[in-house]
Design a protein around this nucleic acid. Structure first.
Length: 828
RNA sequence: GCGAGAGUGGCGGAACGGCAGACGCGCAAGGCUCAGGACCUUGUGAGGGAAACUUCGUGGGGGUUCAAGUCCCCCCUCUCGCACCA
């Protein structure tokens, strides 16, 4: 842990006259060199200062390098880090690489290389580009999730989850992507396709898999959203993804099959009296047991056909509902009727119990199904206002129970509790909560990932690798191509697979699947607190100091994957007493997407990628940074437009001219006019406010505005305060040029260790104000009046001005609206 | 289908319910240049007018208000998320 001081380094750069023209290509490399030489960006732990931890989402270092689109995340975060440091914080701004996982492996396979060679090379290129862009990271804290120093702790966390009963192995039907040649988690299936391959429909595969029990945290993941400062759409996506719904789980006996029952979940137990049939998912285990001989052929064919269907077809909501009668009946224990049991693919095996009670009078899907197959449609809920329930569609709203025995007359909410109470008393069921979210499937049948630290022993079964034997090293493999059979390539490495049981010492085999890459990124933010700590994933002292992350920034595409997983792990760590906070990222912001100039996604194949390298070469890093900040609101998407970089380069040129003129004039201390002083203080006030709110585009607009003002003054009229405060505020955005100016102004230390300028509210006060004069809400005149002269004087002035007099001749006003020092509206 | 967000000049975008279009790009005119995607100055929403001025104008339609880009209702378009979750 470095504990340097905030003492400024001594530059090895002499003060020389400023060139006439601003030339970023001479300025920028020399300051980058100075920063490295003096370790300017080492994290400094100063107990006298509050800490600020700003973090970008863990990037995968792609072989394509960074584009100007990626910088729209990194540059603003860098500005925040630099601003916060100047504003008095100890700033932690680290960077590392999400290097394990499919993208790295696929890329290496494609190029016939090994990820252990490509990953460091690509990461070095990212690092070079980030440095080139003037981003200030403490590179002594660089981490890499594919390094054994790192993944031994990923494995350690796996064991922690396992010990706490949150990692388990289970068989099941899983999503398989043929292109990835591995199993995917539910979150990684989008529109029935692989999240990495939108053109590849996922299929089902039966395999034993490892899961993390994220569903055990479902309620807390929802509840704790209330206390964190995240964009509302992201919170909403998480709530919807978790999909909590309250209802009841009930069971009806299958007629003629003693001991067999259909268990089902419903959110509307109040409609049980209207249940006229039941539907099982085609994969439901009960199907074979209860299907009658007469129906067997039809049922088997339907099940086979459902299996063949792609998920896309199956999940299509526009598709007409289909199903087949099993021949069996269940006894509706409420209405006392025997009701037919059907199978249909609109019932999903993966949700609830894979079976439903159909209340066609109150559910659109059941209604459509009943209509199609001529099933009975009882009506058991009426609108609360006493009107009749519609006959041509399901009445899905809440209302009052009718035709429902002991529920008649009860409001829906009361009827729900009554059914639950009755069901519990009679052993039919109980109130329960169901979630859309499933457990997180974490095993991957691929090579380039964190090995799961588990051993299979013929006598002891599933045995976790003891902590002191970590890391389970990923073996070196030349031919690591996935087989596509559902077995990891690691299964072919005998030296890896064959091991001894940690319990009995007998021969045993290692787990050969690797962990989902999202496991690696579920705890990396902790590692940055003490990246070289060898005794634990993080030094508890450093963790207490730096965590949680004060500002987390990344794309909205991670709303239900990374952000949900990292939150779950954090809660597990909290429960285990490792950390004192429940949420890893108390404040989250999403940067807007930067599309290419043609409005499409920047991609190599489309040939529309713009690199920072090219922009720095042409305009300089500071100009590029400024355009990243100025092109629009940080959180909104926009198209790339290179002309903008030219514009911000021109702005820097103009700043150069103004500062240079001031320095050439011998830096006159100045006795600025009140107006000039006021403008300087107002600029500080506005820019500070915009920086705090991450409104970089308007912060820069304010700076440009102020420059236009300063450019009209002589150096003597400007004064040192206006120039230096301006340069200080420019420094986080244009760090190279800021440093150059600071040196040229005669300072020896780094501008980035200086304090952010402060303003005097007294000096921002205007002496005169413009009062808008309106007649009937239309602007008719503007008056320059002394500030704070009061309502009487202002309304009198407004009534006496020419424009008003002209309009008012022969009329009288009914009312005057007065907004102090702003507006007089005369209502005629 | 459900949910969320967004529609403002030629373009990117500014506007605590109170001067719509800040700031910038582009464009135009002028200056300066051997030259320039350089630099400087001025102008630049639309219509009308010689001008002072004036009318219209924030996707469309209603409404609330002294006053609406901003608040409310309906509609249209685009982007994103979820897509039979019982």
């Amino acid at each position: 842990m470095h504990s340097g001081t905030l003492n400024s380094p001594i530059w090895s750069i002499a003060i020389t006259p400023m060139d006439e023209r601003y030339d970023p290509h001479t300025i920028e490399p020399r300051w980058r060199e100075q920063w490295e030489r003096t370790d300017l960006y080492l994290t400094r732990e100063d107990p006298g200062r509050p800490k600020f931890y700003v973090l970008e989402m863990f990037p995968y270092p792609s072989g394509n390098g960074l584009s100007v689109g990626h910088l729209h995340n990194y540059v603003p975060c860098d500005v925040v880090g630099r601003y916060k440091r100047m504003a008095g914080f100890n700033v932690l701004h680290p960077m590392g690489w999400d290097a394990f996982g499919l993208p790295a492996e696929n890329d290496a396979l494609l190029k016939g290389l090994h990820p252990k060679e490509t990953v460091p090379r690509y990461a070095a290129n990212f690092k070079r580009q980030l440095k080139l862009s003037g981003c200030a990271y403490d590179w002594t804290r660089e981490i890499n999730s594919s390094s054994p120093d790192y993944y031994r702790w990923t494995q350690w966390f796996f064991l922690l989850l396992h010990r706490r009963g949150l990692a388990y192995r289970a068989p099941g039907s899983q999503w398989w992507c043929e292109k990835c040649r591995t199993i995917l988690a539910n979150e990684q299936v989008i529109n029935g396709c692989c999240w990495r391959h939108p053109d590849t429909v996922v299929t089902r595969k039966e395999l034993d898999q490892w899961y993390f029990k994220i569903t055990a945290y479902a309620d807390r993941l929802i509840e704790d959203l209330d206390g964190i400062d995240w964009p509302e759409p992201i919170k909403l996506m998480q709530r919807n993804w978790i999909g909590r719904s309250e209802g009841a789980e009930l069971a009806f006996p299958v007629s003629g099959h003693a001991g067999q029952e259909v268990r089902f979940f419903t959110t509307r137990p109040d409609t049980v009296f209207g249940v006229s049939f039941m539907v099982l998912a085609p994969e439901h285990p009960l199907v074979t047991a209860i299907t009658t001989g007469a129906q067997r052929a039809a049922v088997e064919e339907y099940v086979a056909q459902a299996r063949r269907q792609s998920e896309i077809e199956r999940l299509s909501t526009v598709k007409e509902k289909t199903g087949v009668f099993t021949g069996a009946h269940a006894r509706n224990l409420f209405s006392g009727k025997d009701i037919p049991i059907w199978i249909a693919d609109y019932v999903l095996m993966g949700y609830g119990t894979g079976a439903i009670m159909a209340a066609p009078g109150e559910d659109e899907r059941d209604f459509a199904f009943a209509k199609k197959y001529g099933l009975e449609i009882p009506i058991v809920t009426a609108p609360a206002d006493g009107s009749a329930a519609p006959a041509d569609r399901a009445f899905t709203e809440r209302g009052v129970a009718i035709n429902s025995g002991f529920l008649d007359g009860l409001k829906t909410s009361d009827a729900i509790s009554a059914v639950c109470k009755y069901a519990e008393a009679h052993g039919i069921g109980r109130p329960t909560v169901s979630y859309r979210m499933r457990d997180w499937l974490i095993s991957r049948q691929r090579y380039w990932g964190c090995p799961i630290p588990i051993v299979y022993c013929p006598t002891d079964g599933i045995v976790p690798v003891p902590e002191d034997q970590l890391p389970v090293l990923l073996p070196d493999m030349k031919d690591y191509e996935p087989s596509g059979t559902g077995r990891s390539p690691l299964a072919n490495v005998a030296e890896f697979v064959n091991t001894v049981c940690p319990k009995c010492g007998g021969p045993a085999e290692r787990e050969t699947d690797t962990l989902d890459g999202f496991a690696c990124s579920s705890w990396y933010f902790l590692r940055f607190a003490s990246p070289h700590y060898a005794a634990a994933p993080f030094d508890p002292r450093a963790g207490d100091y730096w965590l949680p992350v004060d500002l987390y920034v990344g794309g909205a595409e991670h709303a239900v994957m990374h952000l949900l997983y990292a939150r779950m792990w954090t809660k597990v760590m909290f429960d285990a007493g490792l950390i004192k906070f429940k949420e890893p990222f108390p404040a989250l912001r999403n940067q807007g997407m930067i599309w290419a100039a043609d409005g499409q996604k920047m991609s190599k194949s489309k040939g529309n990628v713009v690199t920072p390298d090219a922009m720095v070469e042409k305009y300089g890093a500071d100009a590029l940074r400024l355009w990243e900040l100025f092109m629009g609101p940080f959180e909104e998407a926009t198209n790339w437009n290179e002309d903008g970089v030219f514009g911000t380069a021109r702005y820097l040129q103009r700043v150069w001219a103004v500062v240079r003129r001031y320095i050439e004039a011998g830096c006159p201390p100045g006795d600025p006019a009140a107006e000039t002083l006021r403008r300087a203080h107002k600029t500080i006030r506005t820019v500070t406010d915009h920086m705090e709110r991450m409104r970089f585009n308007t912060a820069l607009a304010t700076m440009m505005d102020q420059l236009n003002y300063l450019a009209k003054l002589t150096p003597g009229e400007t004064g040192r305060f206006a120039i230096e405060s301006y340069v200080l505020m420019l420094a986080p955005m244009a760090p190279h040029l800021g440093e150059e100016f600071w040196r040229a102004l005669g300072h020896d230390g780094s501008i980035h260790l200086e304090s952010w300028p402060t303003f005097d509210p007294e000096l921002t006060r205007d002496e005169t104000v413009t009062v808008i004069v309106q007649v009937n809400g239309k602007v008719r005149d503007r008056l320059q009046v002394p500030a704070g002269q009061g309502e009487a004087a202002n309304t009198a002035a407004a009534l006496n001005c020419g424009a008003v007099m002209k309009l008012m001749t022969g009329k009288s006003y009914t009312k005057i609206i007065y907004v102090p020092d702003k507006l007089v509206n005369i209502v005629v």
